[in-house]
Computed example of a mutant assay.
Amino acid sequence: MTDTAATDTPAFDPSTMTGLELLEALTPMLEKVPNIGRLLGMRTDHLEPGMVVFSLETQPDFANPLGTTHGGICATLLDSVMGCAVHTTLEPGVGYGTLELKVNYIRSVPTDGRRLTATGTVVHAGRRTATAEGRVVDEDGKLVAHATTTCMIHR
């Protein structure tokens, strides 16, 4: 009997990889395993130390009772890019968790397939905590929401 999981995905040991290396290795596999990004249709557009860019298209299932995109979609997108931006700064075997998330909503977004792009950037990467900021823009480059986060570093 052949183990298909072993042949479908590259072998790697996450405990030996930096946060950036782990994100780069996982990106091609994200459509194959359950995760919040797959659920929302997030795509990884860019990864570099201290900065991450993800995007998604709005859809009718994202609607709030008023018929526009629920704020939780932008909050999740922002939490993801800011947390992953922090993750890109971490050495092997080190993790993180969101301690605080502050989101400011600027404008409503239709659920008509509009592309939202979020950029997360590290402001401070310390030994015990890290902070980051994020922005979501629509396909016209208009600011939709912005946020800050504080993450606890798990050593």
Rank of each mutant, 00 (worst) to 15 (best):
K102W: 12
V136E: 01
G97I: 11
E48S: 03
T76H: 06
T117K: 04
D140C: 08
D61H: 15
L40R: 12
R114G: 08
E48N: 01
T111P: 05
L78A: 02
C74W: 07
M42C: 04
T88C: 06
C84F: 14
A132H: 10
V123P: 11
L77S: 04
L143M: 06
T18A: 00
T111W: 09
S15H: 13
E100R: 15
E57S: 14
T18R: 10
T88N: 07
H146T: 10
A85M: 10
V137F: 06
D61M: 15
V86C: 10
T121R: 01
F12N: 01
I106W: 00
A125W: 06
T111D: 06
L99R: 14
H146A: 09
V81D: 00
L20C: 07
S80Q: 10
L90E: 11
L26Y: 08
R128G: 10
L26H: 11
D3H: 02
I153S: 04
P10E: 09
C151I: 00
V136H: 06
K142E: 15
T4P: 00
L30I: 15
A132L: 03
F12W: 02
C84R: 13
A125I: 03
P49N: 01
M42S: 06
R135V: 02
M152N: 00
M29I: 11
F54T: 08
F12Y: 09
S55K: 00
V136P: 01
T4E: 07
R127M: 09
G113A: 08
R128S: 14
L77N: 01
P10L: 05
H87N: 12
I106F: 03
L23Y: 00
L23N: 08
A63R: 11
C84A: 13
T117A: 03
T68P: 00
V144Q: 07
V103R: 11
G126E: 02
H154Q: 08
F12L: 08
D140S: 15
T18I: 04
T69H: 14
N104S: 15
D61K: 15
T149F: 09
T88D: 04
V136M: 03
F54P: 11
L39M: 15
M51P: 00
T44E: 03
V86I: 13
A25H: 04
M152R: 12
V86G: 08
P10Y: 01
D138A: 09
A147V: 04
G83C: 12
R135Y: 03
S108E: 07
E48C: 01
L22F: 13
D79C: 07
T119A: 03
S80G: 09
M42A: 04
G19P: 12
K32L: 13
L56Y: 05
I153P: 05
L30V: 15
R107D: 05
D138Q: 10
P28N: 04
L22N: 14
S55L: 06
R115A: 07
L39Q: 14
M17H: 08
C151P: 02
T150Q: 09
V144N: 04
T149H: 07
